[in-house]
Design a protein around this nucleic acid. Structure first.
Length: 276
DNA sequence: TGCCAGGTATAGG
DNA sequence: CCTATACATGGC
């Protein structure tokens, strides 16, 4: 169903697509963006300053996508209250205005960020696409920017009954056993992702890092993008470089408290886009 | 061709 | 606690 929605806050799909938090987004013609999450797909196109044309299943906009895009939160308020504490962060905020932290599915984040280690963002997208196409279910009436069928991200059960050999056909390399183990742990009920959402931030991280292939950085990404823990600050090579070169080795994100994860995202986007 | 990509596990000090 | 090294794969 097509409908017009009003979003009176930061929302630039192109920036979100390039921000390294979701790997199932693509751009079609007429600046239309295709987001896939779980067993859902949405097409989004800007038609006016605050007006967007969205196309998705009836009810999904209200019941799913508004939460996915974190539309309850005012990111312009966040930018305003965080501005002025640090010159480099201010630059990153200005550069990245339009970004949001998506509230994605924890299972998808778990697998996606296990895969992400020592891979480029395009490579991660290709792996996720291959996993979905090979092991996920086709989304009924779902079509991408090339008018081709779209596949949902595989469920824990679907991945649990694959093999390392099969997974390696998706270019997972040495991460294949990590992914298979995580899938079996979740599918068997030995690792309950829903229960994890009840844990405080630090316990959530330690629970996640108990899985093979999940270290502090990957756990921070799952915590931030999958569980909406905005205090999480994933420190990857780019953010680490920013800390070394522009923050005199100090983790300046901590002083932003509940907005720290958002500041991290602005800095990551700024660093990667400008190749600092 | 060597280096890097949204790192982690492991061994050794 | 710390540091060093191996790890698959693809792009440049």
């Amino acid at each position: 169903m097509k409908q017009t929605v009003t979003i009176k806050d930061d929302f630039v799909p192109e920036k979100i697509m390039a921000s390294g938090q979701c790997f199932r987004v693509s751009e079609g013609s007429n600046e239309t963006y295709y987001f896939i999450a779980e067993d859902k797909i949405i097409h989004i196109r800007k038609i006016d300053s605050y007006e967007f044309e969205v196309s998705c299943k009836v009810g999904d906009w209200e019941n799913y996508w508004k939460r996915y895009f974190d539309l309850k939160r005012s990111y312009s308020d966040v930018r305003e209250r965080c501005y002025g504490k640090n010159g480099f962060i201010d630059e990153a905020i200005d550069f990245g205005a339009g970004l949001r932290i998506l509230q994605q599915n924890p299972w998808e984040m778990l697998i996606t960020f296990i895969i992400s280690q020592r891979k480029s963002m395009p490579s991660i997208s290709k792996c996720v696409q291959a996993l979905s196409r090979n092991f996920g279910s086709e989304i009924p009436d779902g079509f991408d920017e090339n008018d081709e069928a779209v596949f949902a991200f595989p469920t824990p059960e679907q991945l649990a009954c694959t093999s390392e050999i099969e997974l390696k056909t998706c270019a997972l390399g040495y991460r294949a056993p990590y992914v298979l183990n995580a899938a079996r742990m979740v599918a068997s009920g030995n690792f309950d992702l829903n229960e994890c959402s009840k844990l405080p931030d630090d316990e959530l991280i330690s629970r996640l890092t108990s899985l093979k292939g999940v270290g502090p950085k990957v756990a921070s990404c799952i915590s931030l993008f999958g569980y909406g823990r905005l205090t999480s600050v994933p420190i990857d090579v780019w953010v680490s470089r920013a800390i070394d070169n522009y923050f005199e080795g100090e983790n300046v994100f901590l002083q932003y408290g509940c907005d720290a994860g958002i500041m991290q995202q602005y800095v990551f986007y700024y660093m990667t886009q400008t190749k600092r």
